[in-house]
C-alpha cells in the first residue's frame, strides 16, 4: 500500500498545500479534493509544496495539472515548491517543465507572488 498525506496551511501569504508520500491513482483524488477545498480567490496564489513527495505517477501529474486548472479558473495562480528531483525529471520528460511555475521553497513562492493574499 502506498502512503500519502496532504496538509493544508492557511498562511497569511496565501494557502500552501503540502503533498507528501506517493501521489498515484489511489491518492490523486485526495490531493485534488484538498485543492478544491481551498476555493482560491481571484488574485490569490496556491502553492503546492512537494518537498515530501516520494513518487508521482501519471495520475499524480494529472492531479497537478487539474490543480493548476482549478486555480486558473478561479483567476488564482498556482506554483509548485520543492519539486523533488524525480518529479523534475518527469516534468522535463513530459515537456511540462516550463508549464508549471516552480520555486525552491514555499516561502520563496509566496515572496515572489506580486499580489497580496487579500487580493488587494
Amino acid at each position: 500500500m502506498t502512503s500519502f498525506t496532504v496538509t493544508t496551511l492557511d498562511l497569511e501569504a496565501g494557502p500552501v498545500v503540502e503533498f507528501a508520500g506517493e501521489l498515484d491513482s489511489a491518492s490523486a483524488p485526495r490531493a485534488l479534493q484538498a485543492v478544491e477545498a481551498i476555493s482560491p480567490r481571484p488574485g490569490q496564489q496556491v502553492v503546492l509544496d512537494l518537498t515530501g513527495l516520494l513518487f508521482c505517477d501519471s495520475s499524480g501529474i494529472s492531479a497537478l495539472i487539474a490543480a493548476r486548472n482549478i486555480a486558473h479558473s478561479a483567476e488564482a495562480g498556482l506554483a509548485l515548491a520543492g519539486v523533488p528531483r524525480h518529479l523534475a525529471r518527469t516534468l522535463v520528460l513530459i515537456g511540462l517543465d516550463t508549464f508549471f511555475t516552480t520555486y525552491a521553497t514555499a516561502a520563496q513562492a509566496q515572496a515572489a507572488w506580486p499580489e497580496s493574499p487579500a487580493g488587494g
Binding site: 485534488l32 501519471s58 494529472s62 492531479a63 495539472i65 487539474a66 486548472n69 482549478i70 479558473s73 513530459i94
Partner: peptide, 9 residues
C-alpha cells in the same frame, strides 16, 4: 470532462 485531464504519452 471536469478539471482532471485525461491525457496520454
Amino acid at each position: 470532462h471536469g478539471a482532471t485531464p485525461r491525457f496520454c504519452t
